[in-house]
Design a protein around this nucleic acid. Sequence first.
DNA 1: CGCGCGATTGAGTAATTTCAAATCTAGTGG
DNA 2: CCACTAGATTTGAAATTACTCAATCGCGCG
Lengths: 190, 190
Amino acid sequence: MELVFRQQLEKIISLTDSEYEYVRSFFISRKYKKHQFVIQQGDHVNYEYFVLSGLIKCYVLDDDSSMHILQFAMEDWWVSDYMAYQAGMAATTFADCLEDTELMGITKENKDKLCGEMHKMEHFFRVKSNLGYIALQRRILSLLSNNAEEKYRQLFELYPSLFQRVPKALLASYIGVSRETLSRLKLPGR
Amino acid sequence: MELVFRQQLEKIISLTDSEYEYVRSFFISRKYKKHQFVIQQGDHVNYEYFVLSGLIKCYVLDDDSSMHILQFAMEDWWVSDYMAYQAGMAATTFADCLEDTELMGITKENKDKLCGEMHKMEHFFRVKSNLGYIALQRRILSLLSNNAEEKYRQLFELYPSLFQRVPKALLASYIGVSRETLSRLKLPGR
DNA sequence: CGCGCGATTGAGTAATTTCAAATCTAGTGG
DNA sequence: CCACTAGATTTGAAATTACTCAATCGCGCG
C-alpha cells in the first residue's frame, strides 16, 4: 500500500532505498473508518496528510450550517487545513472520510526539518505546491466563468472517478450550486 | 527600487551580499508603461515576474470576450501565466499594466537551476508557493460561500489599497459579479 | 416490509444579469 | 480657465438563473 507513497515521490525525485526509509521515518500512518473525522473545527492541526487509499471531503460550515467543499482528497492527494497547519492555529474546517481511508501524516516541524536536511524533498514539496497552485487557479477560473452546467461538466471531465464515489449533493457543493439545481442539469453523467 | 526584491527574499531567508548578487544575476529587469501587455494569449511564456513597482491585471477572455480576473499583482507580488510557464505552453491569459510597472523576471530554466544550486532559494519558493496556495483557497472559499456584497466587503478588508488604484468594474470581475451589481451594493468604500 | 438516504420534481421567490440610458469625473487641448 | 471627451459609475426595468421549501420517488439493506 505504501508503495503508492514512494511512487508519488519518485514521480518528481529519485530516492535510494535508504533515503526513502529516512523520509518515511518522518511520517506516521493512520487509518480511519468511513464517517470518521480527520480534522474538526477548533482542532489543533498537527498534520499534513498524504492519502494512500480512500476518500476525504474537506469543507467549512458557515453560520447557517450550509456546507462548502474546499476539496476532495483521494489516493495520491495531499490534504490538511493548510491555513491552520501553516500558521499553527486552530482549524476552521472539517475533514471527514467518505470511505475507509489510510493516511500518512507529517507534522510541520518534521516537514521543515526534512526539507532542511534533504534538498530533494524541499524540491519535491515546491513542485507539488506549484501544481496545487495551478489547480486552484483553474478552479477559480471555472467558478468565475461558468454557469452551473458548465462547471459541472468541467468537473466531470477533470475528475470522472469522483462521480462513482461521491453523492451528487457534495459535488453540487463543490461547484457552488444547490443540489436541486445540479439535479436539473442535462447531465453528462448519463 | 530593487531593495524591495532583496527585502522580499530576506523575509524568508537570509543572504550575504554576494549570495544576493548571485541570485540577482538570474533575473532580468523590465519596465512597462501603463496599458502595455506583459503577457498575451498565445505568447510563449518565458518568465515569472516579481513586481518591484506598479500594478498588473491578469485575466482571461472567453468566447463572448467577457473578462475574468485571475489576479492583480502589485508591489511584492509574483506573477505569470503559471499554467503556461510551468508546462512550457502558450499563454491562455493576458496580463497588462494598470500603471507604469517595473518587473524582475526569471525563466523557468534559470529558476530550476537557481533552486538546484541554492537550497535556500528552493526553500524560499516553496514557502511562497504554500502561501499562494492558501491565498487561493481563501478566495475559493469566498467565491463559494458569499453573495456579492460579502465578497466585495471581504476583498475590501483584504486589499484595501486596491480600491484606490483599480476601477470598480475590474474589482467586480475579480469577485465574479457584474459591474452594475457591484455598483448597487452598500459599499464599505464610502 | 419498511426505513433512510439520495435524487428528482414543482412552484414560488430572491439574487443577479443584461441591456439601455443617464450621470459623473478627470484629463486634454484650445 | 473652460469646453470637450473618454472612461467610469450609477440607475432603471425586464429577463434569467439559481435558490428555497416542500413533496415525491427509487432503491438498497436490515
